[in-house]
């Protein structure tokens, strides 16, 4: 029996590998020209600082399985139930894939920081996003970015998350720990730089995360200011001047930064809504896909035969994404072997 997996990120790749191992044939659809999804834009992973490229490579190697057919540069456009329990997935390159189950692993998209105009992204030179910083890490370009190494860097948490002004009520979960991880990486590259994190709440939910936070303060001398950025301006030297309230002191604070990093949040990928809509799978108001039940029905959707894996249902870290993918593989197997089909 064949399964169509939409999305060649970590979730889709992991699920493909597991399902192929169970003897199913898998069509894995990826809209970019290589697999890995957003992971391709990362340098190192938290909490163990593993190389992201290494993990992508590992995922890629596992796909070298006779049961897996990879369709790159192909975007899934529409899912239709051609016969009961038979799904047809139309691709942008006119191919139609058929499967007894469809796994949505469409992931997330990074928030477009231009939408927070007052933060100056795209207007001021020295404002970059956390995704761009990862790229600078990979290219070892941070120290020479503006001719000389920055002396003070600020990380702005919650850009595009927990903000009703851009209609994103949700927490993206990962930005806090990513900021801590990136701050540590910056410290390793630039021992002299002063580093600040501007946060609303520190949400260090995962194993080892809180420890990393402690270490950041203790070993890496990273400073934390509790206050949300209201606006930023650019001074005559091209530096960024930020305005926050240091809420724990109770006073407004101004600070000049040589580099401001916006911790961009996660939003539902554009494809999720379109594909889910074509098979009447409901979404949360923020655009992520709604599972059949938040406790016992994860990986399942309101439509039997349509499954989900990874961050297309909510912001998720890599550990949870891979776990979720394996769980999805098991749910699909259960469905195809019929134990759940007529329940």
């Amino acid at each position: 029996m064949n399964i169509v997996i939409i999305g060649g990120g970590p979730a889709g790749s992991e699920a493909a590998y597991r399902l192929a191992g169970e003897g199913y044939t898998v069509d894995l659809v990826e809209k970019e020209n290589s697999i890995g999804g957003n992971l391709n834009n990362w340098h190192q992973l938290f909490p163990d600082r593993k190389s992201a490229a290494g993990l992508v490579k590992e995922l890629q190697q596992r796909l070298n399985h006779p049961g897996i057919t990879l369709h790159i540069d192909a975007e899934a456009r529409e899912i239709a139930e051609s016969a009961p329990g038979k799904f047809a997935v139309k691709l942008s390159n006119k191919t139609v894939l058929h499967g007894s189950a469809v796994l949505l692993a469409t992931g997330y998209k990074v928030f477009d920081a231009k939408r927070k105009e007052e933060y100056g992204y795209g207007i001021y030179k020295r404002v970059i996003t956390s995704a761009e910083l990862e790229n600078l890490f990979t290219n070892r370009a941070l120290a020479t970015l503006y001719g000389e190494a920055p002396k003070r860097i600020g990380f702005i948490h919650c850009v595009g998350s927990r903000d009703e002004k851009i209609c994103n009520y949700h927490c993206s979960k990962l930005c806090c720990v990513t900021a801590v991880k990136q701050a540590i990486e910056v410290r390793e590259m630039l021992p002299e730089v002063e580093i600040f994190c501007f946060y609303m709440d520190m949400r260090m939910f995962g194993p080892g995360y809180e420890e990393m936070y402690r270490e950041a303060q203790e070993r890496y001398d990273i400073k934390f200011i509790r206050g949300r950025l209201s606006e930023a301006a650019e001074n005559i030297h091209g530096q960024v001047v930020v305005k926050v309230e240091d809420t724990l002191v109770g006073k407004p604070l101004r600070m000049t930064l040589d580099l401001m990093v916006l911790m961009v949040g996660m939003e539902a990928a554009d494809g999720s809504g379109k594909l889910a809509g074509s098979v009447q799978v409901p979404l949360y108001p923020n655009g992520f896909i709604r599972p059949a039940d938040p406790h016992t029905g994860t990986n399942l959707t309101a439509r039997p035969g349509i499954f989900t894996a990874g961050s297309c249902t909510s912001p998720m870290n890599l550990t949870d994404t891979l776990t979720d993918a394996r769980s999805a593989a098991w749910q699909i197997k259960k469905w195809l072997t019929g134990s759940d089909k007529h329940a």
Binding site: M200, G227, R228, K243, V244, E245, T247, P252, L253
Partner: peptide, 23 residues
């Protein structure tokens, strides 16, 4: 309110004098 202080940071009055609306 979750006390983020964005209001106080932006505040036109707070720019010129001691005034903390969040507090």
């Amino acid at each position: 309110c979750i006390g983020c202080g964005g209001c106080t940071a932006a505040c036109s009055a707070g720019n010129l004098t001691e005034f903390n609306i969040r507090q």
